[in-house]
Design a binder for these strands. Structure first.
Lengths: 144, 144
DNA sequence: AAGAATAATTTCATTATTCATATATTATTA
DNA sequence: TAATAATATATGAATAATGAAATTATTCTT
């Protein structure tokens, strides 16, 4: 058996993505564990640090969870005072999720660590490679 | 709010990977559903189509599952006659998993469809972009 | 205003996942 | 070589995730 690329999986995009994603986020999971937070919560807080006051539906798409799953995560996070629920003014069916002060404090340190972690992972690649990688991933997300 | 890249998540590698991976594999899940197979089984069969007779531990790493999870998946797949267990000759603690004729038949059509699906996803990108993307992903996997 | 659609929640049954541990085997080492 | 450690897999119980309905409240369409 010669080159890896001759194998199906080692040249299969969906697999390369899944595996790379899995490894990268598993690697960062150590940081999360130290901070005493799990992945769903981290994702919610990180999302809210970009877009505060999303509806639950919007947030569910961002964090790659099903809506009923997210509802339950938010129940716990609300109890822990990391997020708040507010009825949307525009659409009173919808609920806007906002991050609390406590939530912001928790996430701000993690954001810095996350960026450091990413830098470490990308240090062996050129700026150009990083640019292509992120561009392609970003456009996948837009198109799919 | 200007560009997406100014947001944390939209420039955060782990998130871009997770989301792209999620979307790509969700898109292919339609094909799997039609074929009446679920993701764990598909991953096992696809892995075995490259490397037949892996031990359970090796396979678990390939398919991104914990060993106990995989053992249970294999129990079902063995019952369905998609795979076989054999004691390893070199190490009698270990068990080698082999794909059966039925398993091969099942997976061969899916491999073709998977490649088609990938081609469709990548059609908007240059060969060079595809090369960089896969190279970076592959080296993540090797290094992490 | 009626009916369809949407947002979120709740419930329930099913299935999956994890953790810790058990068993068998192999490797190490004193 | 006997004891100990390490490895590969299996198992069982506890926990969690998922999917599919049914529910409530609200908004949109005509």
């Amino acid at each position: 058996m010669a080159r890896k690329e001759d194998k199906f999986l080692d040249d299969f995009l969906a697999y390369l993505l899944a595996r790379a994603s899995h490894l990268v986020s598993e690697d960062y999971a150590i940081v999360l564990k130290e901070a005493g937070i799990d992945r769903p919560r981290w994702r919610v807080l990180a999302s809210l640090s970009d877009y505060d006051k999303m509806t639950i539906g919007e947030l569910a798409r961002k964090v790659l969870m099903k809506q009923p799953t997210l509802t339950k995560v938010l129940d716990k996070m609300e109890e822990e005072k990391l997020v708040k629920r507010r009825h949307s003014k525009e659409d009173r069916r919808a609920i806007k999720i906002a991050i609390t002060k406590k939530g912001k404090e928790k996430v701000s340190k993690l954001l810095i660590k996350a960026k450091k972690h990413e830098k470490a992972i990308l240090k062996n690649y050129t700026k150009e490679e990083e640019k292509v990688l992120k561009h392609v991933l970003r456009t996948f997300i837009e198109r799919l």
